[in-house]
């Protein structure tokens, strides 16, 4: 079966700086993959290029059989990809509820508001407060929750655990496992290796704008020496 998301030879630039030097990756439907790598190796840029936020790019990006290379930014989401940025992007002038309802539905099959509030009870309690009055963990939950409502098939998650307390990280892990049960496809960028090993099916290791390794989670013990060298963990 063809992968849901297929990226081949992706190159991307920020202005004059050449960041991605030919990224190849594929994600099967329902799979959670994790991109590991040190800071500045192009992990976030990979997600932003797939999304089309970075428009200076060449190569191939296919999603669900559709070519995404010549698609404008607001049509990428319509294809069924949702993006949760590293800085979370919660809007201060919108209430929690308004933040949640902001992204338009792109397909049927998204979670209902009730289901989301069951999964994130904190958000329900605080639905009328301004978005940025939430704690960091709640903001991360909200950033994920608002994509789940849209019916997107694939979630691009940029460092969801960054700066959060262990108990919150655990909760985010629970949410990701719940999403997997529902068949969601996830591309995770993560520095927190322990967290990633509990949720991901497959790993990519990124270095200087390229994927230098790919292995399934079962192979993780054999890869530890290589990971220690490239990631310095």
């Amino acid at each position: 079966m063809a992968p849901l998301l297929n990226v081949a030879g992706l190159q991307a630039w920020y202005g004059e700086s050449h960041i991605l030097h030919g990224v190849d990756l594929h994600v099967n439907a329902g799979e959670t993959i994790c991109i590991l790598g040190r800071n500045g190796m192009g992990k976030t840029t990979t997600l932003r290029s797939i999304m089309g936020i970075l428009s200076k790019r060449t190569g191939k990006i296919e999603f669900d059989g559709a070519d995404l290379m010549n698609v404008t930014l607001h049509r990428t989401a319509r294809a069924g990809i949702g993006f949760v940025p590293e800085e979370r992007g919660i809007f201060a002038t919108l209430s929690v509820q308004e933040n949640l309802m902001l992204p338009p539905k792109v397909a049927d099959g998204g979670m209902s508001v009730d289901e989301i509030y069951n999964l994130f009870p904190n958000l329900k309690e605080r639905r009328n407060s301004p978005g940025t009055k939430l704690s960091g963990g709640e903001q991360q939950m909200l950033a994920m929750a608002r994509i789940l409502r849209t019916g997107a098939k694939c979630l691009l998650l940029d460092e969801p655990t960054e700066g959060l307390a262990p108990v919150i990280i655990q909760a985010i892990g629970d949410v990701l496992r719940e999403l997997k049960k529902r068949g969601m496809t996830v591309v995770l960028v993560e520095q927190n290796f322990r967290f990633a090993s509990k949720v991901a099916d497959r790993f990519y290791v990124m270095d200087h704008g390229k994927m230098i390794a790919e292995f399934p989670v079962a192979d993780l013990p054999n890869q530890m020496t290589m990971l220690n060298e490239t990631l310095g963990v």
């Binding site: 089309g52 989401a77 993006f83 809007f91 919108l94 849209t150």
Partner: peptide, 14 residues
């Protein structure tokens, strides 16, 4: 209002 804060992110939502 959201676009006033971060137009790129709002556009990425579709």
């Amino acid at each position: 209002r959201a676009s006033t804060e971060d137009p790129v992110l709002v556009q990425s939502f579709g």
